[in-house]
């Protein structure tokens, strides 16, 4: 079964980790609400951690609606998926797809034509446990919602990242998800799609507003910028580069996850326009 899809050198590092005794960290990325950026966060965090030299496995738990392969540009390289491994139709080595761009980063894709209800929660837990033996980080991209797919995604994780946009509906969903997670996962918050211009105008909730409501450790703040959409469509995560505020925000999240002491996350607020300077602030 070996070396069907990969060369021996490509699979080997996935199998043997430097220190064999220490288990890697399994982190689930979840949100409740759909379309807030779970998959984008997963792809960029995985890329940023791998760029730091960590060995990272990304698991797409959105069976039936997979997307992580597209964001990484790996959709043509997927041969086996999570359910193949759970059903023992493929070995982990065969199913793990090496990333094109980052050494040490691997994807375990979701099945597109199957249902979430087909996944056995205990088997999923065992799969994540065996990935933890091989990788420093196992990052699980949860589907939206709080149904079976969410429960499966959470099953093997010890930590959680909750992703939220500055909208009241997304904030409420995260609040509910944090309640469902209970006390085990030490959830940390990523606030995504912040538009500083709108915060300044008062039409969007600010980071402080969201923080005051949720009271979670803040892991990062990501601005809403067109470049995210472009890189997503292209299959090249923004965190591949270190240029610009948003790419650096992802690298700061990775550093924080790795336990580094990084300055508190913030988004650069727009400078006052000429108009506002003339009229001493106006609405701002």
């Amino acid at each position: 079964m070996h070396a069907l899809t990969h060369t021996a050198t490509a699979t080997e590092p996935a199998v043997t980790r430097g220190e064999t005794t220490k288990l890697g960290r399994a982190i689930v990325v979840t949100s409740g609400k759909g379309g807030v950026g779970k998959t984008t966060t997963t792809a960029n965090l995985g890329t940023a951690l791998a760029q730091r030299g960590a060995r990272v496995a990304l698991v797409d738990a959105d069976i039936g609606l997979r997307n992580l392969d597209i964001l990484l540009g790996l959709e043509n390289r997927v041969q086996y998926h999570v359910l193949d491994v759970l059903d023992e139709n493929a070995s982990l080595d065969d199913a793990l797809v090496a990333d094109k761009h980052s050494d040490g980063l691997y994807l375990l894709a979701a099945a597109q034509s199957r249902e979430k209800e087909e996944v056995d929660t205990e088997k999923m837990r065992a799969l994540v446990a065996s990935l933890r033996e091989r990788f420093d980080y196992v990052i699980i991209d949860s589907p939206a919602g709080i149904e079976k797919g969410f429960k499966n995604a959470v099953a093997g994780a010890q930590e959680a990242i909750v992703v939220c946009t500055p909208e009241v509906s997304a904030v409420r969903d995260v609040d509910r998800v944090v309640g469902l997670l209970g006390n085990r996962f030490r959830p940390q918050l990523v606030i995504n799609r912040v538009r500083p211009q709108l915060v300044k105008k008062g039409t969007m909730l600010s980071v402080e507003d969201v923080d005051a409501f949720l009271r979670l450790p803040l892991l990062g703040v990501i601005a809403d910028e067109p470049q995210i959409i472009v890189t997503t469509n292209r299959g090249e995560p923004l965190a591949l580069s270190r240029d610009g505020q948003t790419a650096n925000a992802y690298h700061a999240i990775a550093a924080r996850i790795a336990g580094e002491d990084v300055p508190a996350p913030r988004v650069e607020m727009p400078k006052p326009t000429l108009f506002e300077r003339l009229f001493r602030g106006g609405r701002a």
Binding site: G34, G35, D62, G64, E115, K116, P143, A144, G145
Partner: peptide, 8 residues
Amino acid sequence: SPAGIEGG
């Protein structure tokens, strides 16, 4: 509808 293609 909720997001996803599950029971909801």
